Amino acid sequence: MSTSDRREHCRTAMSARVKVIHEELGEHVFPTRDISDGGIFIALEGASFAPDLGDSVVVQVQGLPVPAPILNMVVVRKTDEGYGLQFALDTE
């Protein structure tokens, strides 16, 4: 890990499909690259999806035998390969 890596949580490689819903950009399904206690990284794989940093999205893992929880997340990082999404803190 480089000294410029400021991540608080350790990442674990994880391949899953997640549905991402953005209020303006609609609904998309993306593969994940990794997960941590703080969030996930979604890989775009050429898909047209360009949220702004700070945008809220709703995420749900797909393909499980039972419906997965629906999670509120925030776009916190953008790379050429995809986006880092952080679990939103519930304020209720």
Rank of each mutant, 00 (worst) to 15 (best):
F87I: 10
R11I: 02
L89F: 06
H28V: 06
I21K: 04
Y83L: 14
A16N: 01
G38L: 01
L44A: 07
V76C: 06
G54A: 11
E24D: 11
T79P: 05
V59S: 03
G82R: 10
M1K: 09
V58M: 10
L64Q: 13
V75S: 01
E27A: 14
F41Q: 11
T79D: 08
I42V: 15
P51T: 05
A13E: 11
D37W: 07
D90Y: 07
D37N: 12
Q60Y: 01
A16S: 08
V18K: 01
P51V: 04
I21H: 04
S48R: 13
V61L: 09
C10H: 09
S2Y: 05
A43E: 15
E8V: 12
I35P: 00
D37Q: 14
E92R: 10
D52C: 06
F49E: 05
R7K: 08
E81Q: 13
G63N: 05
D80N: 13
R77Q: 13
A88C: 05
F41W: 08
A50T: 12
A50H: 08
V74L: 07
E24F: 10
I42F: 03
A47F: 03
S48W: 03
L64D: 07
E24I: 08
E92Q: 08
D34L: 06
A13C: 02
R6T: 05
P65R: 10
A47T: 12
F30G: 04
V58Y: 02
G26W: 09
I70V: 15
A68W: 03
R11N: 03
D52N: 14
D80F: 01
F49W: 07
K19F: 00
P69W: 00
S56C: 07
V29K: 03
A88Q: 14
V74W: 00
E27D: 10
M73W: 03
V76W: 00
A43D: 09
S15E: 15
G26P: 08
P67I: 06
S15T: 11
V75I: 14
S2K: 09
E27V: 15
I70L: 14
G54C: 08
G84T: 07
T32H: 04
R17I: 11
V75Y: 03
P67A: 13
R6W: 01
F87Q: 05
V20R: 01
D37S: 13
L64P: 00
V29G: 02
I35S: 00
H22I: 07
V66G: 02
E24N: 13
S2Q: 12
G46Y: 14
S36Q: 06
C10L: 14
G39R: 03
Q62S: 07
Y83A: 04
V76P: 00
V61F: 08
R17Q: 15
P31D: 15
E23S: 13
S56F: 08
G38S: 07
A13I: 11
N72V: 01
R77V: 01
A68S: 15
E24M: 09
A88M: 12
L89D: 03
G82P: 02
G54N: 12
L89R: 06
T91F: 07
D37E: 14
P31I: 11
E92D: 12
D5M: 04
E23D: 15
L71M: 14
L53K: 05
S4D: 11
T12G: 00
I40E: 00
G82W: 04
V61I: 12
G84L: 05
S2A: 15
A16I: 08
L71N: 04
N72K: 13
V66C: 06
